[in-house]
Write a protein that binds this DNA or RNA. Structure first.
Lengths: 150, 150
DNA sequence: TTGCACTTTGGAATCATTCCAACTCATTCG
DNA sequence: CGAATGAGTTGGAATGATTCCAAAGTGCAA
C-alpha cells in the first residue's frame, strides 16, 4: 500500500501541474506517490499494479495519461526515450548518436576515447559495463542530406 | 536499387557469418548491402522497403532474421537497445542509467557536471542538444535491494 | 442549473516484433 | 540416384506495449 504524499510533494505536484493548467486528481496523487515510494524505474505496468493496491478502480489508460502528463510538466523522466522502431547501423567504431527531433534523423557523433574512458570511470565499484549508449536529443542546423560515405 | 557488395564487404560478411556457423545467402547479401549503402540508421521497415527493390519476394520476417543474425555476429549494431517497456523515474538530477543484464534492474549513476560538459563539447557546430541519455549495459555485483531513498 | 474544461475509463485499434509451421534448397549418406 | 538432414526463408497468426476514442464523470464559474 502506498503512503500518501507528503505536504511538500503534494505542493510540488500541484505547482507543476498548475503551470500547464492542469489539476491535482486522486489518480495523479497516487501515481506520483508510487513513483516516489520506490525508485526502481518501474514500467507502466508496474506503476499500474502498485497504484491499484490503493485505488482498485484505476485504469491502465489513466496511468499512461498521468505519466505522460508528469513527463510533460517536468515532474518525471522517461528512462527510454527511444520507444520507436529499432534502428540499425553498420558503424562499429565507438560513437554516440544525435537524434534530430525536427527531422527524426539520427546522426553519428564521433566519440573520443578519453570521453569513453572518463565515462567508464564514473561507475561505482562492482559495476562492469560492456556497452555504453549515448544519445543526444535536440535540433541540428544540418538538414542537408549528407554524403553516405562507405 | 542496391549495388552488389564489394568483394571486400562480401568477405567480411562471409567471415563473420562463418564464425558462428552460418552461411551467406542472397537475402543476407542484400540486407547487408542495404545497410552499407545508406548509413542513415534505417528501421527494419526501411531496410525491408529498400531491399525489396532488388528482391521483390523478400519477406519482412527474413529482414528481422538477417538483422538479428548480423547483430549476433557483430556486423551491425542496434541503435536502440532499449526496446522494452518504457520506464520512469522521478530523479530529475542529471544522471546516467546502468541496466544490469542479469537482473534487468536499472540503477541511477551520478553524472559529474564536468563529464556532462565534455560530452556537450563533442557535438559538431550546429548541433544543439537539450537532453543527453547515457546508459550503461552490463552486470553489477550489487544484487542486494538498495534502500529506496526518498 | 447549465456550460465548460479537464479527467477518467474500457475497449478497440495500431504498430513493432516475435512466433510458428510449412516450404525451399543444398548437402550428405546409403 | 533418392531419402534424410538442416539451415534458411516465408506468410500469417500471436503478442505486447502503447495510443486512440467516444462516453461518462467532476468540479467550477457564469
Amino acid at each position: 500500500m502506498i503512503q500518501k504524499l507528503s505536504e511538500h510533494d503534494r505542493e510540488k505536484l500541484q505547482e507543476s501541474l498548475a503551470t500547464s493548467g492542469q489539476k491535482v486528481t486522486p489518480q495523479r496523487e497516487i501515481v506520483f506517490a508510487v513513483l516516489l515510494a520506490k525508485r526502481d524505474h518501474p514500467t507502466v505496468e508496474d506503476v499500474f499494479q502498485r497504484a491499484r493496491e490503493s485505488m482498485p478502480g484505476l485504469s491502465l489508460a489513466t496511468v499512461y495519461n498521468c505519466l505522460e502528463t508528469f513527463v510533460g510538466c517536468g515532474l518525471v523522466r522517461q528512462v527510454n526515450h527511444e520507444r520507436e522502431s529499432t534502428r540499425y547501423c553498420p558503424n562499429l567504431a565507438p560513437h554516440a548518436h544525435f537524434r534530430d527531433e525536427a527531422t527524426g534523423r539520427v546522426h553519428d557523433i564521433e566519440l573520443p576515447p578519453e570521453i569513453l574512458q572518463s565515462l567508464r570511470s564514473i561507475l561505482p565499484p562492482g559495476f562492469n559495463s560492456e556497452t555504453i549508449e549515448i544519445s543526444f536529443h535536440g535540433r541540428s542546423q544540418d538538414h542537408a542530406p549528407r554524403p553516405s560515405s562507405n
